[in-house]
């Protein structure tokens, strides 16, 4: 299974996404990391180019709702049907609202690495 981990928006906090990337790699997944400050369109280009099975967005600056809405619109426009998930500094109270924007799962602040790994293993 191939996973694209991406950093949309301007937020430069990449400790979490890099930690997750290593954990997923150790769990046997193939991981591609986008690097910082990638526009949603660029992330989707990468997803198509590498034919990934799932996209993970890491957002810590509080822009998760706006970015996810962009993500939903851009995916609809491209008629792309890749599962995607959102993690980072996401308050629990925003999870329901976020889920309405189309991600397959949201991992709010405090999620354990093993829970994310288990989730991807189930997708497999």
């Amino acid at each position: 299974m191939k996973i694209l981990l991406a950093k949309p928006g301007l937020d430069g906090h990449d400790v979490g996404v890099k930690v997750l990337a290593q954990a997923l790699k150790e769990a046997g997944f193939q991981v591609i990391y986008s690097g910082l400050r990638k526009a949603v369109e660029k992330i989707l280009d990468m997803a198509e180019e590498h034919q990934v099975d799932v996209i993970g967005l890491s957002i810590l600056s509080g822009t998760h709702l706006i970015i996810s809405e962009n993500m939903m619109n851009s995916m609809n426009k491209r008629n792309l049907k890749i599962p995607w998930v959102v993690g980072g500094n996401i308050p629990v109270k925003d999870v329901d609202q976020l889920m309405k924007l189309g991600p397959d799962q949201v991992f709010p602040t405090g999620t354990q690495l093993r829970d994310v790994i288990t989730y991807f293993q189930k997708l497999n």
Binding site: G9, L10, D11, G12, R37, A39, S61, G62, T63, I66, I67
Partner: peptide
């Protein structure tokens, strides 16, 4: 973040980030 990344508030990339952090 727009100020930190050298972007003005009216740039596309700044949308949703102006004054946030």
């Amino acid at each position: 973040l727009p100020t930190q990344c050298g972007l003005d508030s009216d740039s596309d990339e700044a949308f949703g980030e102006v004054g946030r952090v």
